Amino acid sequence: SSQSQGISSSSTSTMPNSSQSSHSSSGTLSSLETVSTQELYSIPEDQEPEDQEPEEPTPAPWARLWALQDGFANLECVNDNYWFGRDKSCEYCFDEPLLKRTDKYRTYSKKHFRIFREVGPKNSYIAYIEDHSGNGTFVNTELVGKGKRRPLNNNSEIALSLSRNKVFVFFDLTVDDQSVYPKALRDEYIMSKTLGSGACGEVKLAFERKTCKKVAIKIISKRKFAIGSAREADPALNVETEIEILKKLNHPCIIKIKNFFDAEDYYIVLELMEGGELFDKVVGNKRLKEATCKLYFYQMLLAVQYLHENGIIHRDLKPENVLLSSQEEDCLIKITDFGHSKILGETSLMRTLCGTPTYLAPEVLVSVGTAGYNRAVDCWSLGVILFICLSGYPPFSEHRTQVSLKDQITSGKYNFIPEVWAEVSEKALDLVKKLLVVDPKARFTTEEALRHPWLQDEDMKRKFQDLLSEENESTALPQVLAQPSTSRKRPREGEAEGAETTKRPAVCAAVL
């Protein structure tokens, strides 16, 4: 046999249950609850290399294929790409003598399909299967379609040439079993990697079954959420508030809700932002270029202005709740996480202390139980975000031990490091100062900020419009641009040419 590394010779191994799959997660993409704000000051410096380099560890398999027929071997997927077919160049070659004697062998292509993985959001991997055969590759009886790919989820059954000719079961060793999710959700989405997690739940990458488009699904544990919100009269209202707010909003710089499922837990389906959180971008770069800050901040102002015009105060604006559309420097941003939002009543007064301390406005800290506050709290938070983006460190921090965090904020005395700000323009610093004003009545509004000289930049605004146009074009394009080929190089076993392929839609398939 010419099988590559990772293939075992026996096809009769006992199949494990899916609970053996491991679970991976990374930083929070968007969480309903406010958790302790991640610290920006503690960015690790590059460490000196050791005298002796450690040995390379043996790579762990990321997936496993269990053979369902004699003549096929099990495969431990270690590499990122595997070709399957009769050709000797394939990493998994159909060359077992037992297999060659079967009637089905002649229906398999020289290069029938490939399984591979690509880097997705949060640097996690996504597994795909890609059909290159004349007679078809099927996943859970659905045709992939020649020249098309679809994501592979845990426990997928792979069939060759005929939908009933099941050859492998695919085990993704990095994700959960699909069966743990409600059927209504599974009918519409293929669940994938964990993108982030918080005290009350997690955010998962998923794929729409009909279109193969990526989405983010925010899962909120009702049990954990009820415990964490025990002081509230009705904890469920917080989730329902977020859903109702998101459904009503329609702005290019605000995250869109696509679906909602109320089962044992809450499942909020949101558009996916491939670039992750602004927080991670700031930490990764230490600070952002001023031109990049301007492009992002302009969009934040437009989003918050839209919220305020619609009578909504976000109340928890922070870099973790600003998501980026891509890994590119120039990209769209979207505001997310409306769990603490407040729809303005007639009095415009709110007395609930919520939000993240580092970003809270002075009037929030001094008015607990005594007075109210209004939309100006969001403008203060925007000032803190702009400060961080321009400088790479927070204006107020618990680690300045000589003054408490509350006193720093209520006095408006931010930590100004001259040598850092020497590289920032006077106009940018002036806008920061106009937003970090203790008196909410004297603080800049979103309208005033948008009129500030720093943002009178036609090149930046043109760039934003171009990015918007690109997004609109990409969302308007159909996901499947061509029909699967019906040509046949070899006959199917026991049926006429093209008899099955043309009847089945290529579900969740995307043209390369």
Rank of each mutant, 00 (worst) to 15 (best):
E244I: 15
N250K: 06
H251D: 06
H251Y: 08
P252A: 06
I254Y: 00
I255E: 05
K256W: 09
K258G: 09
F261P: 05
D262C: 14
D262K: 14
E264A: 09
Y266R: 15
V269S: 06
L270D: 09
L270T: 10
E274L: 11
G276P: 03
G276S: 13
L278T: 02
D280T: 05
K281H: 09
V283G: 07
N285R: 04
R287Q: 10
L288K: 03
L288W: 13
L288Q: 09
K289Q: 12
A291F: 07
C293E: 01
K294T: 10
K294L: 03
L295P: 07
F297A: 09
Q299F: 00
M300K: 07
M300Q: 03
A303L: 01
V304F: 08
Q305H: 13
L307A: 13
H308P: 10
H308V: 03
E309T: 11
N310E: 05
H314G: 00
H314N: 02
D316H: 04
D316N: 01
D316T: 03
L317E: 01
N321F: 00
V322E: 00
S325A: 08
Q327E: 06
E328P: 02
E329M: 10
D330E: 07
C331R: 11
I333M: 13
K334W: 02
I335N: 03
T336Y: 00
D337Q: 01
D337A: 00
F338K: 04
H340R: 03
S341T: 08
S341F: 04
I343V: 02
I343Q: 00
I343S: 08
G345P: 13
G345Q: 06
T347H: 09
S348M: 09
S348H: 15
M350A: 12
T352L: 03
C354I: 10
G355Q: 03
T358C: 13
T358W: 15
A361K: 05
E363Y: 01
E363S: 02
V364G: 06
L365F: 14
V366K: 04
S367G: 13
V368F: 12
V368T: 02
V368R: 11
V368C: 07
N374W: 04
N374V: 03
A376F: 08
A376H: 14
V377L: 04
V377T: 03
V377A: 14
D378Q: 00
D378A: 01
D378G: 01
D378W: 04
C379P: 06
W380S: 03
S381A: 09
G383H: 05
I385V: 07
L386S: 03
S391G: 03
Y393D: 03
Q402H: 13
V403W: 03
S404A: 15
S404C: 14
L405P: 04
D407W: 07
G412D: 03
F416K: 00
E426M: 01
L429M: 10
D430V: 15
L431Q: 01
V432C: 14
K434R: 14
L435F: 14
D439I: 05
D439N: 10
F444W: 12
E447N: 12
A449W: 03
A449T: 12
H452P: 02
H452S: 08
W454F: 10
W454G: 06
D459H: 11
K461R: 14
S469Y: 12
E470D: 13
E471G: 14
E471S: 08
E473K: 10
T475Q: 11
A482D: 07
A482G: 11
Q483I: 04
P484T: 09
P484F: 00
T486Y: 07
R488A: 04
R488Q: 07
K489A: 05
P491V: 04
G494T: 04
E500F: 04
T502S: 05
T502E: 05
T502R: 07
C508Q: 12
C508K: 07
C508R: 09
A509P: 06
A510V: 06
L512D: 14
